[in-house]
Amino acid sequence: MPAVSSRTALQLLMLLALGALLLGLGLCVGSTGWSPWFGAQAFPDDTMRQILWDIRAPRSVGAWLAGALLGLAGAMAQGLFRNPLADPYLLGCSAGASLGVAALLFAIGLSPTATALALRIGMTGAAFSGAVLAVVLSLVLARGVEHGLRLLLAGVVVGVVLGSGAALLTLINQDALRAMQAFMLGSTGFVGWSAVQVMALSLGVCLLVGLGCSRTLDALTLGEDTARSLGQRLTLIRLLLIAALSLATGAAVAQCGLIAFVGLIAPHLVRSWGPTPHGALLLLAPLTGGALLLAADIGARWVIAPQELPVGIITALLGGSYLLYLMHRRGSVLGGAR
Rank of each mutant, 00 (worst) to 15 (best):
L177R: 13
D218W: 03
L284N: 03
S194C: 00
Q307F: 10
C93R: 06
L247E: 05
P112K: 09
V135N: 01
L247F: 08
L203M: 09
G231L: 13
P310I: 10
G223D: 01
G79V: 05
P84L: 14
A167K: 14
G223F: 08
A154G: 10
L117V: 14
G210V: 04
V61L: 11
W34C: 02
L185F: 15
P58H: 07
P112C: 05
L334R: 12
S94A: 15
G186T: 08
D225P: 05
V209T: 06
A68M: 02
A266D: 08
S138K: 06
P36M: 11
L177F: 14
A77E: 10
C28P: 00
A95S: 15
L284Q: 06
A68L: 01
A97T: 02
G290A: 00
G163Y: 14
M48R: 14
A57L: 15
D297L: 01
F38R: 12
L52E: 08
V333G: 06
L133M: 12
L80Q: 04
A337T: 10
V160A: 14
Q255G: 00
A9Y: 07
S194W: 10
L21H: 05
A126Y: 10
V311M: 11
L169P: 08
S214L: 06
S94Y: 06
A134D: 02
L99N: 00
L99M: 09
A219T: 02
A219H: 02
F190T: 07
G26R: 04
R120C: 08
M327Y: 12
A97E: 01
S60W: 04
G130L: 03
G92N: 08
L119F: 15
I108E: 04
A200G: 10
L27R: 04
G79F: 07
G163T: 07
P306K: 08
P84V: 13
L27Q: 11
I55N: 09
R59P: 06
S187H: 10
L241N: 04
R143F: 09
F38D: 05
V270D: 03
P310L: 11
G67N: 02
L137S: 06
A285Q: 12
V135T: 12
P306E: 12
Q78L: 08
Y322L: 15
M184W: 02
T315A: 11
G189Q: 11
R82E: 06
S35Q: 15
G299I: 00
L323H: 09
D46H: 10
L239M: 13
S202T: 15
H278A: 09
L258T: 02
L264R: 01
D218M: 07
D87T: 09
A300Y: 03
I313C: 10
I108L: 07
I55S: 12
T235Y: 09
S5C: 09
L139S: 04
T47W: 11
